[in-house]
Design a protein around this nucleic acid. Structure first.
Lengths: 230, 230
DNA sequence: TATTATATTATGTATGCACATATTATAATT
DNA sequence: AATTATAATATGTGCATACATAATATAATA
């Protein structure tokens, strides 16, 4: 790493912005000027500024120059969690248990949401994820067998569906919905919680191209918190 | 945009990965080989691959080469929401109402969490955010007056604290915790909900460098869902 | 055999240059 | 004055080159 790596320049520029030296929305010096100031090539400055633009710290326009973002957007990022890893991170022993597993015809609402033809059956599974033998999360899942026929042969007692899918059908797109729900009898029972308790629910659906892969509802145990840095 | 822009190359490479041409964890051709194949400079390939690495699609190691990520991590991103915008996006009319506003000494737990000296007071506020005159979110907030003295002069009846802070003290870092809680009497009252209902809670603290700026608890009305693409 | 030095290799980075492109400012035209 | 052409400018991009750096493979040594 040379003294003038674009990393260093980027960091210095970031600090000049964050310190308020350049106000919100203000125009900052052009690439050429900065290149002179830092005694480096314009390319290096360009690289640094482009990264800052990717991060949402500055906005760049041809001829218009580079200005500090008016309202820099901070993002909270979450990874698709593999429950096993979540459990192991908190230092607990992970185990999962399949409560039910059957091919059946999804309800109408699930079918339309997942664009599954009426006649087709899908795989429905209920799984309990345990941390130190205590319920950590309760999972309801539909899997599109047409899209992932191999799942019928997967050793789902050893590796959780979650993990098997992530490692087998990667690069899928999807959406996540977080919400809070009151535990009903079924969920409360599965989580050894009480009916009515506030449960953190993650509802996730993933696609491979246009094809539906899986949809899952994850009910976390009482007091679960999803943490993220900004 | 030339035919061989790193954007194009990146996209093509992405597709080769996502199509499964290169399996999970597999080594992909070196930069030089790809440069020959695509008839472009190694620099261009390098640029494309570095971006893919940033995205978490490949892992690169000097001498080791570039391999497809074993378990490509998809991220869910959330912006720090300005409640007004959340409300306006769903097509409702936004209004906020300050329920209380006072300087007072934070409780011990808040003080230690926020690293505020014992003697110092902070600004405590309760705000209701309304969508079409119905409660949308209930906000409890502590603001560090030492860090943001100007807040005492801000027109907080016109612009919400949230928005004023975001636009005045930008570039802060912070953390967010999402969880589900049962509404107590106070929260239920504020949201015109019922005691015990599951409430989606966002707990956010922001810092400017080492200095505490603000901490906020946002209780969203029943049925609120936080949505994100993967 | 085990350890250490050396060479090899793929990626990482900086630079100078040329040209592309979008946007703004200015001049020319109607 | 309004419209249209033209020039100026800041960023965007590609390329060839050179060297840096980390990790590995190979050879030399104890």
């Amino acid at each position: 790493m040379t003294a003038n790596s674009h990393h260093n320049i980027r960091q210095v520029l970031r600090e000049r912005i964050e310190s308020g030296e350049w106000a919100l929305g203000a125009l900052i010096p052009g690439e050429l000027a900065l290149a002179v100031e830092y005694r480096c090539a314009r390319t290096t400055i360009n690289r640094a500024l482009q990264t800052l633009a990717d991060e949402g710290l500055v906005v760049r326009k041809r001829k218009g120059g580079t200005r500090v973002c008016q309202m820099p957007v901070r993002h909270a990022k979450f990874e698709i969690p593999i429950v096993r890893e979540q459990v192991e991170v908190i230092g607990s022993k992970y185990r999962h248990q399949i409560m039910s597993q059957q091919k059946k015809t999804p309800t109408a609402s699930v079918r339309t949401r997942l664009r599954i033809p009426d006649a087709k059956k899908a795989l429905f599974m209920e799984t309990i994820h345990l941390a130190d033998e205590r319920p950590y999360a309760y999972e309801e899942r539909w899997v599109n067998i047409q899209a992932v026929p191999k799942i019928m042969d997967a050793p789902l007692d050893q590796i959780s569906v979650n993990e098997w899918l992530v490692k087998t059908v990667p690069f899928s797109s999807g959406d996540v919905v977080f919400s809070a729900v009151n535990a009903d009898k079924r969920v409360a029972g599965a989580l050894e919680s009480k009916v009515g308790n506030a449960i953190f629910l993650v509802d996730r659906t993933t696609w491979l191209g246009e094809e539906f892969i899986t949809t899952i509802k994850l009910y976390y145990r009482d007091g679960y918190q999803l943490y993220s840095q900004l």
